[in-house]
Design a protein around this nucleic acid. Structure first.
Lengths: 212, 212
DNA sequence: TGTCGCATACCGACCGGTTGGTATGATAAT
DNA sequence: ATTATCATACCAACCGGTCGGTATGCGACA
């Protein structure tokens, strides 16, 4: 759930500018903590434009989760680790990429879907479902590689799908812990969690040497 | 960060009733999504009582994090796993207890400090610090056992403190993932994450058989 | 070619309700 | 008599959302 502004094309329409503003402000202040007027100010549009494109603030939240999902999904789909021949290497390659993407203050690497669902899981079913799609979609993208790795190494007692969910859990947990830190220490604490996840997989898949 | 109402004495003063209401409503709706009037309604007191005991809504947030920290800290400090002779068993005992405490809808087992910090880490330094104390305090309570386990097993490349932080990260991540699910599936998904954490520790500390 | 009909995109003033917070007073214990 | 603990009444600011209106563009048809 990472790519920053630089990875995406600059938004042109009011709708895209609002979605971009939503990503930025929700990561920094949360959803309930961000007003429609603030969103409009950040996007440089008016309230009229906002409610022309979105039926409600909740609808903007849903659209932001989908927008986030689409842009991060595309980013990871293009990543070079997919071309590695060994499935275990592909999994570790994903984790290493996630580690490399963590840097700066927490709001620059944390996840919109995770923030949204933590606030709105009970008050808005639509937002909960959109966040679920985003996070579980990320997990599903790892499932094939993890399944292959599980098969290849003869692992028992778990599945690729379950391990893929755990990857997402550790990432989300890393973001929460990072937010407890002052700006300077946030990224290090988050990376530490991904490093533990990596060690878990190295132990599980019996990979002693490390690459990268 | 678990104990439910049943673990704590019934609140008597208006202050305690407000803190109890804060725990309940923040877990369900988040901090920004909960109004002062709602808090007062849940606690059965008036706004006058609220602002007599707390200088601001933010101050209530800080106090709620501290209240949460104190009650959960006391609960885990009393748990029987501390009497196990082997430090690895104590660590696994903690995880098993956490797994046992997960059940019902997400708002009944998730963490107030994690929810607070996710929303308010940038807008309120006081809340961020209070949440950090809560979460890292939980980690510190595990540090001695994990350090002993690391020493006993001759683990290299990490420390008890780092592993203790990872335990908290997985717990927080489990809660975020749980909130993406409909009520019926939330607890299972959260427990799955703790099971992976347990497997990590079993692999790391070379513990093949399992107890419990 | 011009223009009519209509849809899309957007503006900004405005509305009723809610928000966090305050001022003041009542009650009861010390 | 004083102080701690609340209740009542109230306020200005802000909230999400609405509404009447404008600018632009596009296809149909005379």
């Amino acid at each position: 759930m990472i790519p920053n502004r630089a990875f995406r094309p600059a938004p042109v329409t009011a709708r895209d500018k609002l979605l971009e503003a939503a990503v930025k402000l929700v990561r920094r202040q949360g959803f309930a903590g961000t007003s429609v007027e603030q969103l409009c100010g950040e996007a440089g549009v008016t309230k009229g434009a906002f409610f022309h494109h979105f039926a409600s603030k909740e609808a903007l939240g849903v659209a932001a989760a989908e927008y986030w999902s689409a842009s991060t999904g595309a980013f990871f789909a293009e990543a070079p680790f997919h071309h590695l021949p060994d499935p275990v290497d592909r999994v570790l390659g994903y984790i290493d990429l996630r580690i490399a993407l963590i840097g700066g203050p927490a709001e620059s690497f944390s996840c919109v879907a995770g923030t949204l669902v933590q606030e709105a899981f009970r008050s808005s079913a639509a937002i909960r479902v959109a966040a679920e799609s985003s996070i579980m979609g990320n997990a599903r993208a790892l499932e094939a590689d993890l399944d292959a790795a599980v098969r290849q190494c003869g692992i028992e007692g778990t599945t690729g799908a379950s391990l893929a969910r755990h990857v997402q859990a550790v990432i989300q947990g890393a973001f929460v812990l990072a937010k407890t830190q002052p700006e300077s220490g946030a990224a290090d604490l988050a990376r530490e969690q991904l490093a533990h996840l990596r060690r878990y997989f190295v132990l599980l898949f019996g990979r002693d040497a490390q690459e990268e």
